[in-house]
Each structure stands twice: as structure tokens, then as C-alpha cells.
Amino acid sequence: MAEIVIETRNLTKVYRDFWGRQKVRALNALDLDVRRGEIFGLLGPNGSGKTTTIKLLLGLLFPTSGQAMVLGRDATDVSKNQRIGYLPEESYLYRFLNAEETLDFYGRLFNMPRQLRRQRTYDLIEQVKLGWAKRRQLKEYSKGMTRRIGLAQALINDPELLLLDEPTTGLDPIGIREMKDLILDLRKQGKTILMCSHRLDDVQDVCDRIAILHQGELKELGRVDALLKVRDVTEIHATRLSTQACEEVKQVIERHGGQVLSIGNPTATLEELFVKIIRESEAHPGRRIRADQHEADESGNGHAGDAQRTA
């Protein structure tokens, strides 16, 4: 079994007001293990304690009781930060710096030599596609751009462990896709990622294991595929199947005592459509869609794939 990177034992956080009176029990006796090389998703509705958990893991907050260990050290130990990257909920960056200065500053905090700092800054700005705006102060950035530079800053030290707090909010669908690809890519490089989100599709797409929090309590924990598997439903994907063939398949199923729930052409998700269009537009800049072409698309066989789904 892989090495445990994050470990919380009975982790509890109670927010108190100035007078020490209890305000909110944001996290209650959380036990979590995150293993090296996996993508772990923290799920939960708003106010369920996801951000609180991440802040406890970073040592920004001190636990009311229980313990959080990160990379084998106590969460409040600064030296663990050497190997950690953190993308906050919103990118909390200095708005008077530009992209290059931002990355340079965080690089300095890692005591990186100048040459390496330059290199990393250049690479990361390219990676998050901000080359065109790298000299602009962050206060002029749009939300998504800020998010991207936030991500770049989290990667400045090539961290082993990434803590991403809602990595996809504020990004356009392309950005979301890129972010997901990046996350998967990072896992390929052997990094461990803890992310929290309430966008289920994101989590579903990338996470190996998830934990679901509600009102500070752990409600569910396990592998995504195992959790999502609907054991009494079978899925068949086929292509180039005539209507008649479909009918036959249906009969076969019924003969075996099964029940056909639906047969039809699947629709792509809007996300897939959007991503496809933008990718095409990037490949052929300047091409515009004409109204008649649009209509033709609509009446004819559209973007929906030619696969048929039987369940």
C-alpha cells in the first residue's frame, strides 16, 4: 500500500468569536488518509467544511482537537511547505504585482536561485497560457486569469502534494478541461492531489477517491468508480447499428429476463460541444459561423456522435 501523505485523526475545528464563545463547529472528528500518487476529492455542499479542512492541513488554522499530519510532519510545521503547493479558494495574490513578479516573489520564498526562478516563471506562464498578459498588474486580470496565475504560483516549487480548493471555479470550459488534464498529468508524474469542489462532474472525471462532507461530518469515503457503479444496470455502447438490429438486441435482452430501460442516440454534454467548438476555432482562427450553415447543422445530423446507447 502506498505511503500515506495526509493523515488526519479526529480532526475537529470549532470557530469561536472574540470572547471565545462557540460559533460554528465546522469540522467534526474527521479521519482521512490520502495516499501518495492519488487524486483525492473532498466533496460537499457550501459550508460543509472543505475549505476548513484544507486550511487545517496547511496550518493556517489550528485544530480545536485532533491532529493533522502532512508529509509526515505536523500541519503547523513550516518546513513541510517546501513540498506543497496550494491553490486557494480565490486567488489571494498581490494585485499590484504583475504575473512575472508574482511568480518571482513566490519563487524567492522557496529560496530558489535566480536562474531557476526565471526558468520556472517562464515555463509556468506558458503553461497557464498567460504569456500575453505577463506584464500586466493582477488587478487588471479577469477572474479566470487570476485563477490561472494562482495555479501557476501553486506549481512554482514543483510540489509533491497539491492542495486545490475548488480549482475549476472561475475558469471557462476550456480552462476547466485544461485544469482537469493538468491534474491528471500531475498524477502521472507521481504527485498527490487533494482537491475540493462541489462540481460533481469535475470530481467524477479526475478523482480516484472521494470523501463527502456534510456539516462538518464525513458522510462517505471510497473509490469513485466503486461508489458510482450501479451494479444492477448494464451499459452497452455500439456503433453502426441499424434500427432493426436494435430491435433484435432488445428482444435478446428480454429473452434473458432483463428489462430495457432506454434505447436511443446519446447526446454529448454541452461541455464536450463547447470544448470542440473552441478547439476548432483555435485551429482555424478567423472562421465564423454563418446562419444558414447553422441551420443546416441543426436539421441534419448534428454534433451528436453516431453511437447508439442501449441500457
Binding site: 486550511k55 496550518g59 489571494y92
Partner: peptide, 14 residues
């Protein structure tokens, strides 16, 4: 207040 310090203190700076 603007939490920019969060991003700073999660680096190895003391």
C-alpha cells in the same frame, strides 16, 4: 484581511 497572506505563509517562509 484580503488573505494574500495565506498564499505567502503556505510557502516555506517563516
Amino acid at each position: 484581511r484580503s488573505r494574500t497572506l495565506h498564499t505567502v505563509v503556505t510557502k516555506p517562509v517563516r
